[in-house]
Design a protein around this nucleic acid. Sequence first.
DNA 1: CGGCATCTTGATGATTTCCTGATGCGGGGG
DNA 2: CCCCCGCATCAGGAAATCATCAAGATGCCG
Lengths: 234, 234
Amino acid sequence: MTGRGTGPVVVLVEDEPQMRRFLRVALEAEGYRTVEAPTAAEGLQQVAGHNPELVLLDLGLPDGDGVDVTRQLRTWTTVPVIVLSARGQEGDKIAALDAGADDYLTKPFSTGELLARMRVALRRAERRDTPADAVFELDGLRVDRERRLVSVHGAEVRLTPTEYRLLALLVQHAGKVLTHRFLLAEVWGPGRTAQTHYLRVYMQQLREKLEADPARPRWLRTEPGVGYRLHVAS
Amino acid sequence: MTGRGTGPVVVLVEDEPQMRRFLRVALEAEGYRTVEAPTAAEGLQQVAGHNPELVLLDLGLPDGDGVDVTRQLRTWTTVPVIVLSARGQEGDKIAALDAGADDYLTKPFSTGELLARMRVALRRAERRDTPADAVFELDGLRVDRERRLVSVHGAEVRLTPTEYRLLALLVQHAGKVLTHRFLLAEVWGPGRTAQTHYLRVYMQQLREKLEADPARPRWLRTEPGVGYRLHVAS
DNA sequence: CGGCATCTTGATGATTTCCTGATGCGGGGG
DNA sequence: CCCCCGCATCAGGAAATCATCAAGATGCCG
């Protein structure tokens, strides 16, 4: 990755080096991180690999049409795509937009307008990122992942970020046994899959906050030698 | 309502009768139902009254700026807004887009492109759930997003623009936890998602102005390590 | 050019969360 | 019977995050 910082990641699919450089400089000055791809094939790869917040896509690529790239992307991702093109024909615009592009800018365009349209696309995308079926409920235990709220028999429970992540994982795979290794990798990163002690401490804290009798857990069951599990049956 | 059928409802805010007629005919031929408004004030009313799927907004209105109309709308609804303008200056575009518009078309534009961009906006807006009311009230806290008025137990509270934007976001997602990153991106732009200090300062100011006891907030709750939330339950 | 409102930035103490070590408990094998 | 191992439990200090106050910087308006 070329850019630094913590801003959104943008994939630039553009064959002309000069244009690429211009975009990279402009975007990085605004705090974006950029990934560059000079061809359609590489563009698809980079999007798949980096899972960016936005894609800037040139229509005239050496190895394929930008419209096809858009159609390809739309089969598996809803990442915002802004098309940049030298062609300003109505037909081109309609084809690109109907293929799934979010906006269409005709070269030459002003940097300010590009940035403004990028902000629009990011704004829209941010709002859509919330799945609606995010409420889990089981026998008094309620986990609302949209609001990030947890309650037991109606009483709201305050969880720390780590506690919540752990619980969210268990809920997501309700009923299944999750190994120590898996939980550690997901919550603390792949680096510390040996610190099983972390898990014990946080499971204890979760039980303390959620279970009526923490010593005899109803939901947060231990699977000795393997890991933990959110028990679903009665 | 002028249009027939069951298609999406579109509010046309446009003072020129000829242009209005042209749009109405073009849209109804595509199956849209149209509602017309010749002024900014009437436009706001029609949007509030019809809860349309889309708004087409002319910038040059007799009784106010279209950018202001957009900003007004955005304080309480996320309905897609496409701006139509005779002015093609970069500054106009950026102002409108940053005020919350989803797209900006410079007159004269082709009908085909307009319809394609409308399809994009409708596609993007799909599967969302903001039956947002223009006036939010909760237990003495009142936020009128149509008039941009905030009051606590009847007493009006003066908020700075940034304070209001922050509060409006919290109100729009009342009950949900909004992450630092999200709030910063919405209020200060995607570039400064690391300046959590801004948030602390402004949350403090909001609490100072709204809460009876700023140190023990009733509405503006901190979610440590995550973000902030407008508390709705008891 | 002030004056005013607002936004930004810095400094400091309080609070919350995280990590870590110590200790207790219980079952299985020697 | 005792030791060892995995798990549970408790608690204290380190680190990160948050609240608070206030002083500069900025921009706007007359």
